[in-house]
Design a protein around this nucleic acid. Structure first.
Lengths: 178, 178
DNA sequence: CTCATTGCAAATGGTTTGCATTGGG
DNA sequence: CCCAATGCAAACCATTTGCAATGAG
């Protein structure tokens, strides 16, 4: 295991995240027209480091309509340039996709999302695929942690963090990412 | 591996799901009052075999207010008597909880949810816990499949089923459970 | 030029809340 | 009796849609 700038990197170094141009290219590849709102969106997204909600983006780009934000985010997810992740409470967050198979490590404190790839996970999936009746068509795996930065000065904050792994306990408002 | 009535059972036979009385008891344990609406709800829930949405329940119990349904479902989830699962598209579903650590095998065709426990999963979690920076506070794991029954007569339906495992591709309406 | 894309506003769908009323313990 | 729990309706919030106007190719 290697740790870089507090980020967990396992086995495979995470490739550079897409640039503004990569996002635009992803849209072009899908036969979409490149408009100003879409350029603005791409710029906004690549500027972000952590996970973000659609609302976050819409708020930052008040020149751009809500509908356009949602429509474009969807396009980018379909194009594989963005990941849609789920917070413990079920609310969706987006993050730039490195275009490889990976999973997410979500900090419940700050909402930061790191991507990782770990042989133990792939091994597990292979084993399950063999044992499951019927065709395995997909999976969802998120690991929730309290990252190093968020653990500091939060000693007393272990309150409800006993998130169990099955579905979710129904907690009130989630740790908002922004 | 053992298969019972088409259900996948791995390693640990799944304990009997809670009865109506178990649900009531779960509420009592939490210091809740046992009212008629709650009895009705408990009865309705134990009658169900597959996963259900809050809306499903509300629809069946038109004597009971929506608010009460949502409030009570939340109580039961908190009490650990119900699981809240997430469909591939992000929409929540409930299912009776066997009160043990387990994960979910969700059929994207019919919405049926089976619980399972598999050493490969636990092994994977242990490995990840060791490698992750910071405290691992929880996880979310759902495996999506097309169950035996749903595969039959759906040969041509392999269209978009390439659900990838990271977050979700943004597909339109989900395969509704009911 | 033409059709995809946009912004707006209204519609939606699922969930929560305020509040006066009801009923369990 | 009293306070938890209810039902209703309104409030909410994120997301989607209809539609006329706009602008990319």
């Amino acid at each position: 295991m290697t740790t870089i700038a507090g980020a967990l990197i396992l086995d495979v170094v995470i490739p550079a995240t897409p640039t503004e141009d990569d996002l635009i290219a992803a849209l072009e590849d899908r036969g979409c027209r490149i408009t100003q709102p879409r350029r603005d969106l791409a710029a906004s997204l690549t500027r972000r480091r952590d996970a973000f909600s659609a609302e976050d983006v819409a708020a930052e780009l008040d020149g751009v309509g809500r509908a356009t934000v949602y429509r474009t985010l969807r396009l980018l997810v379909d194009a594989g340039a963005l990941c849609k992740t789920t917070m413990p409470d079920g609310s969706p967050r987006y993050s730039l996709d490195n275009a490889r198979h990976h999973h997410h490590l979500v900090c419940v404190g700050c909402g930061r999302i790191d991507e990782f790839r770990h042989p133990a996970v792939e091994r597990m999936l292979r084993a399950m695929s063999a044992d499951v009746e019927g065709e395995l068509v997909g999976h969802r795996l998120e690991l929730y942690r309290r990252c190093g930065a968020c653990s500091v000065g939060e000693e007393g904050a272990k309150r409800d963090s006993r998130l169990h792994g099955q579905g979710e306990r129904s907690g009130r408002s989630p740790p908002l990412a922004r």
